[in-house]
């Protein structure tokens, strides 16, 4: 079995976990057996996902062009989905809010399904990416993105329960969701900061300038500023609930544009 096959199974695995989570929610959100079942299956699929990334790494070495599987859009999407999976598991442990899986898992499935449209072939590393900074830069950025993704999911739930009281009854208390929105940003922002700093260090080392207002750089800074504004609005101005949730949604919009949108603008990151 190749890593590409394993990725297809993992995609359907996440879809399966989503269905289990849906059933558990229908059966009664508070049931602890349901929560354990959902978490167990999610961890099982996520471990398989981890194995698929490891397998792809091994495969590249077997081909004689060994490098970490973080070198193109296909590989970065697989890693993004992995990071979201990890963040969902951690959030599920920490806050016991099954509802975030109902929105988070479809997102993971969507990200994985996107890889089906791309060329999965393992290619040798182009000179610009041949650096030890690659792994540190990409891993920290995507862990940050994953934190923001969970914040976004919780923010959407906050906005949903804010808009309809019948929905609010079925969802976790706004207080808990609000906490998830905030805590995920609190983890995501330091990760993004590390990602930007490692990226700047790499750029300085490879291109001789730590910052050159390349569109991807600029958009990562925009994302950083939006989430910084979020933290200040929350900690110093006491924003919470729907207002804070809106900021989190705007922030995630910036994340998505940093990831996908800038590919339509010219710049050094255009191979991603």
């Amino acid at each position: 079995m190749t890593s590409v096959d394993l990725n297809s199974y993992v995609t359907f695995g996440y879809l399966g976990v989503f269905l289990v989570a849906l059933l558990a929610q229908a059966a009664g959100a508070g049931a602890s057996w349901g929560r354990r079942l959902v978490r167990g299956t999610l961890i099982f699929v996520w471990v398989a996902h981890t194995a698929s990334i490891g397998l792809r790494w091994v495969e590249s070495y077997r081909m004689g062009i060994g490098h970490a599987p973080l070198s193109n859009l296909y590989e970065s999407l697989v890693f993004f989905a992995w990071a979201i999976g990890l963040a969902l598991i951690l959030a599920h442990y920490r806050f016991r809010a099954g509802a975030i899986l109902l929105l988070g898992l479809p997102m993971t499935v969507l990200v994985m399904a996107y890889t089906f449209l791309l060329d999965p072939e393992i290619k040798p590393l182009i000179p610009a990416l041949q650096s030890n900074w690659l792994v540190a830069h990409v891993v920290t950025c995507f862990l940050g993105y994953a934190g923001f993704a969970v914040s976004f999911v919780a923010a959407i739930l906050v906005l949903l329960s804010d808009s309809s009281s019948s929905l609010a009854k079925r969802l976790p208390a706004t207080r808990i969701l609000d906490e998830i929105v905030y805590k995920s940003v609190l983890v995501g922002l330091p990760m993004l900061t590390l990602g930007i700093v490692t990226g700047a260090a790499w750029a300085d080392y490879a291109w001789g300038s730590y910052w050159s207002w390349d569109p991807k750089e600029t958009w990562s800074l925009i994302t950083w500023m939006v989430y910084s504004a979020f933290l200040h609005a929350r900690l110093a101005r006491g924003w919470s609930g729907a207002k804070a949730a809106m900021l989190s949604v705007i922030g995630f919009g910036a994340v998505m544009f940093t990831y996908f949108g800038v590919n339509y603008l010219p710049g050094l990151h255009s191979y991603f």
């Binding site: 925009i222 500023m225 939006v226 910084s228 504004a229 200040h232 609005a233 110093a236 101005r237």
Partner: peptide, 9 residues
């Protein structure tokens, strides 16, 4: 701070 961050963004 918040206003300047948004303007810069």
């Amino acid at each position: 701070t918040i206003a300047v961050l948004f303007l810069l963004a």
